[in-house]
Every structure is written in C-alpha cells, then in structure tokens.
Amino acid sequence: MTSQLLPVTSGQTDAQGFEVVAWPGGKPHYEGEPVVAQVTTGQGKRNLHLEVNQMGEYPRVQVAPQESVNIKLQFQTSKTGMPVALTAQDGGTLAGAKVSQRVVLDDQRSVFFDFAASANVGTHRVTIATPAGEVKTLDFWVGEPNTMRTTAQR
C-alpha cells in the first residue's frame, strides 16, 4: 500500500502553478501579516502553496530523509529590506549547514531559502521571526505519516 504524501492538496493551483493546500474547514483567520509559503520539494517534485492558520503554522509537508526543499515566503505588507530570522528547530539545516540564518525582504517583499531535513524520522520545524515579534512555523515530516492506532483496531 502506497501512502498519500502530506499535505493533501485542493486540486487548485496559484498563479505560479503551485498546488494550493486548503485547510479542511476553510481558511483560518490570522491576526498578523499573512505570509504565503511556496515550497518546492526535491525528491517529491511537489510545488506547494501554503498559508498559515490562526496559530501561525503552515500545513505539514512530508519529505524524505535528507531531502532538500526550496522555500519562498511572500510577505504582504512588510517593507523591502526588513530582516527575517530563520531557525531550524528540530534537526535539519538551512543553507551552508547552519541552524539559523538572517535574510532580508527583496524588492517584491519576498525571501528565498533552502532547508535540508536530517536523516531522522519525525518533525523538522523551521521558525520565521520578524522584528515585530511575529513567528510563523513551517513543519516538515520525515518518513511515513505518523498514524495513531487504537486497541480496537487489532
């Protein structure tokens, strides 16, 4: 049995051709600046359009051990040149084998960076923090999806 890669997409694409990942109950309200993440996986060859939920978290993306992904964050209202702090929280690295990195918004209010997951199975979060104190979190899952099984399923 082949498992479905996470996240499951909506069947729609954005203007750049990225598969839109829709939240099951509709788009959650977010108090802060909505930042769209466009994630391109290496081995999975998926192009995903992700939006934050009310907690500033993006949908989980399943990746292979040591897989590299390219990420574009599109800010909506922040000014060009604003610094953004990136941190690999649970393993994996950013460009140059670093666990943290400072990037700045370009003329289109975007930042681009790469993330490489570790060989360890489990969650690999990358936090994105702005000078205003807003924190958003990308969540990459290495390995097969973590499914719960109850004793009733024996």
Rank of each mutant, 00 (worst) to 15 (best):
V61A: 09
L50E: 02
L138N: 06
K136Y: 15
L5F: 06
Q108L: 11
G25T: 10
A85C: 05
E31H: 13
W141H: 15
G91W: 00
F112H: 09
V142I: 15
Q76R: 14
N146E: 12
T87F: 11
V36R: 10
N47L: 03
T150F: 14
L50T: 00
G26R: 04
D107N: 11
Q38F: 01
V142S: 07
R125N: 13
L86R: 08
V99R: 02
R109E: 11
F140W: 11
Q66T: 03
G17W: 12
E57I: 06
V121Y: 05
V121A: 12
D107M: 07
A117E: 08
K72W: 12
A119K: 06
R109F: 01
V21T: 00
E57V: 04
R46N: 03
V52C: 10
T151R: 09
F140T: 09
A129Q: 15
T9M: 00
M55N: 14
A152C: 12
G11F: 00
P145G: 05
G26N: 04
Q66S: 14
E144P: 12
G26A: 09
A97D: 13
A95Q: 09
A132V: 13
S110A: 11
W23S: 05
P34I: 05
P59R: 07
P28Q: 11
K27G: 07
S100I: 06
P83N: 11
S10L: 04
A119H: 10
A129K: 14
V69L: 07
L138P: 10
E57P: 04
A22L: 04
T123A: 06
K45L: 00
N47V: 00
K72Y: 06
T13G: 02
T77Y: 12
V36Q: 06
P59F: 05
L105C: 08
S68T: 15
T147K: 15
V121S: 08
R60P: 03
T87L: 12
